[in-house]
Design a binder for these strands. Structure first.
Length: 302
DNA sequence: TAATCGTGGGT
DNA sequence: TACCCAAGATT
């Protein structure tokens, strides 16, 4: 018993890792709005939409305004989608505002105004993918599902696999790896999903991990291997933003949000020096339903 | 499936 | 400065 051969790495005790991380989380969790008691499934759903690729600190003020104005899905469903896009402000990726509005309409129409708790029902909503569906089911309803985000993948890659970075996301592999760590009880499981994400967000960060502060440093495979450099497949690098179509779309959207009237074509053409690129960006916004052609120009969707 | 989609702060 | 990164989803 308790014999560990020399030069043999013992398998990570998943019960110890999850219990340790949960205890750490209970003592160290940031006080975030969506973690307050009784925050509600709608608030959690809205927060998850906003947190898709947008940092926590930029989300919080927009989230609080949003929920004060639209405390239920039906409240949001009752206003034009353009109002959602305007309230989205500069959170980025404004299609998410359109999708959140569409999801609110679907929740109101097909679920009696109650955010569904079933994974398949959640996945059927516009703008909800695998991560968000699981996050809502686990965090709003306490269901026992593995929830895997970019933080979770990084912590598992380091602590369990001993690599400096995760390989590109792979749904099946990621869910299986997280499933092996997940505590049996639904309550502990929901806690652990949040705890491992939190560790990745504040301690086991991408650029400068704070290993001295890590509660599972003694179980970390990456540390045990003396922090080998990552040699696997790199994720595709983001294209440069400066001068991109995304930048031009952003300029047009800022104009549409700020003008509480239609914006003329001539006004749009002053926003960027390259007319062809402006045309291309504007056309893509129309395709996305973010800009609506009107008789005298363009508006947000009514 | 790989490319696309905003914005701003950190290193 | 230039690049990286952020609770992803869609096509």
């Amino acid at each position: 018993m308790n014999v560990t051969p020399a030069n043999h790495t013992p398998p990570v005790n998943s019960a110890t890792v999850s219990a340790t991380l949960n205890a750490w989380f209970l003592a160290n969790a940031r006080d975030l709005p969506w973690r307050r008691d009784g925050f509600g499934a709608w608030g959690i759903l809205v927060s998850e939409f906003m947190l898709q690729q947008t940092p926590v600190n930029r989300v919080i003020p927009r989230l609080e305004e949003w929920l004060a104005r639209w405390p239920t899905p039906a409240d949001l469903a009752a206003v034009p989608p353009g109002e959602a896009v305007r309230a989205w402000s500069s959170l980025g990726y404004p299609r998410r505002a359109l999708w959140l509005h569409a999801a609110a309409v679907q929740i109101t129409e097909f679920h009696g105004g109650v955010v569904p708790s079933d994974l398949d029902d959640l996945l059927a909503l516009t703008g909800i993918g695998d991560y968000t569906a699981r996050a809502v089911a686990a965090f709003a309803y306490g269901h026992r599902h593995p929830v895997v985000d970019t933080n979770t993948r990084r912590v598992i890659a380091r602590a369990i696999a001993g690599a400096g970075e995760p390989a590109p996301p792979s749904r099946g592999r990621d869910l299986e790896a997280m499933g092996r760590l997940l505590p049996e009880s639904a309550h502990e499981a929901a806690l652990f999903n949040a705890a491992i994400m939190e560790l990745g967000a504040v301690v086991c960060t991408s650029r400068s991990p704070q290993c001295d502060l890590c509660p599972i440093r003694n179980a970390c495979a990456w540390r045990a291997a003396d922090y080998p450099e990552y040699t696997g497949i790199r994720k595709t690098v983001q294209k440069k933003f400066e001068g991109s179509d995304r930048q031009v779309r952003g300029l047009i959207m800022a104009e549409l949000r700020g003008a509480h009237r239609s914006v003329t074509d001539a006004e749009i053409m002053t926003l960027w020096p390259d007319p062809a690129q402006l045309r291309r960006a504007l056309a893509s916004l129309v395709t996305d339903g973010l800009a609506i052609p009107a008789a005298d120009g363009y508006t947000l969707p009514e």
